[in-house]
């Protein structure tokens, strides 16, 4: 015991952080073994597809950064990884846009999920310059053309003095470190918030005609889903 009357471990910041983390995300919530039955729908898979595409983007980008432009422009294996990086980015945006549409039309910010929605929306916004700096880091004429056009566009909006799209070193640093760090950090926060609040239930047409259950569904709570007669949790393996 200390002079404050608390055991030393009670005052430790690591203990405080651990307790708050466990209270917010207990292990069975962080890594669940089942999901609500409404998750068994194709419309719910685009989040994890975006995540899969992002992993491919990071993995292929790491290989490209290790080997350099002299490799990705001249060797067949370099061409392959260059293409893999490009198409995984295309798929990342493709899946992310459909994920965005799905979540927008089901009002995914219901049930205290505002931060889930905001981290997802900000991820989308940050991913755009992450991709743009990649297009201008290719080290070819295409990159040169895009960077000069984008430089004009940035200058026209008045933000062109904060960074120089014609500066390869600066843009490459943005592309391989700063913006990926932001995207990965935001995606991590987004996924942890989804785990904390649970996957948003769909809006049910039947609830629109039943005022009592409509309130619960509008809040995005489990009560709203159960009141509409949805089945209970179902195993992911099912």
């Amino acid at each position: 015991m200390t002079a404050t009357g608390q055991p030393p471990e009670e005052r430790s910041w690591t203990v405080g952080v651990r307790r708050r983390a466990l209270a917010a995300l207990p292990p069975d919530k962080l890594l669940p073994d089942s999901q609500p039955s409404y998750v068994a729908s194709w419309i719910y898979i685009f989040g994890v597809l975006s995540l899969g595409a992002l992993v491919t983007v990071i993995a292929s980008g790491t290989i490209l950064a290790t080997k350099g432009p002299g490799w990705w422009h001249t060797s067949s294996l370099g061409h392959f990884f260059n293409s893999l990086h490009l198409w995984s980015v295309e798929l990342f945006f493709f899946f992310m846009v459909i994920h965005l549409w799905a979540k927008f039309w089901m009002s995914a910010w219901r049930g205290g999920r505002a931060r889930v929605w905001m981290t997802g929306a900000i991820t989308f916004i940050v991913a755009i310059p992450a991709a743009l700096t990649g297009y201008i880091s290719q080290q070819n004429f295409d990159a040169q053309w895009i960077s000069t056009q984008a430089k004009d566009a940035m200058n026209a909006t008045g933000i062109g003095s904060f960074f120089n799209l014609l500066n390869f070193g600066q843009m490459y640093g943005y592309h391989v470190f700063l913006l990926p760090l932001a995207v990965v950090g935001l995606v991590a926060a987004h996924v942890l918030l989804v785990r904390k609040h649970g996957v948003v239930p769909p809006l049910l047409l039947s609830d629109l005609t039943t005022p009592a259950s409509a309130t619960a569904t509008a809040r995005g709570t489990a009560a709203g889903t159960a009141s509409a007669g949805s089945p209970g949790p179902v195993s992911e393996a099912e």
Binding site: A40, I43, I98, A102, V234
Partner: peptide, 25 residues
Amino acid sequence: IVIVAMFVVFLIALVAPFPGHRRRG
């Protein structure tokens, strides 16, 4: 083409049955 493809995939995801999912009862 990409925008149209996104619309098509979105619509299919809404209506296509999910494999292995059976409702209770």
